[in-house]
């Protein structure tokens, strides 16, 4: 009985979390232009979506920015984490605490302070400024994901490798990297999610016609969004679900393999 109530609670919660997404998906197949009246099943918004220049350009900038920010912040973050792990004393405290600033600051303060800096340095607002802002708020999360994995590592392993004649690069590639790969993946995933979902920081740091999806939806929501956006949401949620299913399946099969050992 109690178990049933618990399950019911979780299902109710999931209903709450998925209802808005379900609504977007249903309306994406609506023949009518307004989201108010159901006019029969149609794929017209999916066709319209690919002909909508504004949305396509917003999607392009969102993905480009997310991919670049993820790659760059993962590389910088991983190497910095390795370096910070070898630091001690004051320098370590300084790095770790400065790294927290973008994490504990609210988005709006981070976004506006960077906007001030770009304006002050007379840098033209556009894709580059948005990308720099994204990299800046992604790196701390990569470092925070990688650092604990480095701490768990046996420091003798690297020394042993070096004693046995491995070059530092080989030691890094063969010993350190496999050990911290889970942290790096977590960091990269976090970075990608944060970047693709960001509105506030992008909003203040973009310019000259560069719009990401969040900004597009923000400016369109007040006027009433064209139904193509429903179609886009549907595609996005399907892609994400598929990706997660693949990742989970891989994680599960890895787990069972480990279990067999």
């Amino acid at each position: 009985m109690v178990k049933r109530l618990e399950k019911a609670y979780i299902y109710a919660l999931l209903f709450f979390l998925y209802a808005p997404i379900g609504v977007l998906i249903v309306y994406s197949f609506n023949q009518n232009k307004t989201n108010r009246v159901w006019g029969g099943f149609s794929l017209r918004w999916y066709i319209a979506l690919f002909n909508n220049r504004d949305i396509m350009s917003a999607l392009y900038y969102t993905l480009l920015c997310a991919v670049l920010a993820t790659i760059i912040s993962t590389i910088i973050g991983t190497f910095t984490a390795i370096a910070v792990d070898s630091l001690d004393g004051l320098m370590r405290v300084v790095y770790v605490n400065l790294n927290y600033i973008p994490v504990i600051n609210t988005d709006i303060v981070t976004g506006i302070s960077m906007m001030l800096a770009f304006a002050f340095a007379k840098i033209k607002f556009g894709f580059a400024t948005m990308l720099i802002a994204h990299i800046s708020f992604c790196i701390p999360y990569v470092i925070l994901s990688v650092l604990p994995k480095l701490k768990q590592m046996d420091p003798n392993m690297v020394e042993a490798a070096l004693d046995l004649g491995a070059t530092p690069w080989q030691a890094f590639y063969k010993i350190v990297l496999p050990d911290i790969s889970v942290g790096i993946t977590t960091g990269a995933l976090l970075a990608f999610t944060l970047s693709i979902d960001d509105f506030v920081i992008s909003f203040f740091n973009t310019g000259s016609g560069v719009t990401n999806l969040s900004i597009y939806v923000y400016s369109a929501a007040k006027k009433g969004i064209s139904p193509e956006i429903n179609a886009l949401s549907t595609i996005m949620i399907l892609v994400v679900t598929a990706l997660l299913a693949i990742i989970n399946k891989r994680a599960l099969s890895n787990n069972s393999k480990r279990g067999e050992k």
Binding site: I10, L13, L14, L17, Y18, P20, I21, V23, L24, Y27, N35, T193, I196, D197, F199, L213, S214, V217, Y218, A221, I225, I229, S233, M236, I237, V240, T241, L244
Partner: peptide, 18 residues
Amino acid sequence: SILPMWMNFLLRTYSWMN
């Protein structure tokens, strides 16, 4: 319970307007 977070935050909010 975390999956919805992967959909754009503005889109989710916009859906509530509907």
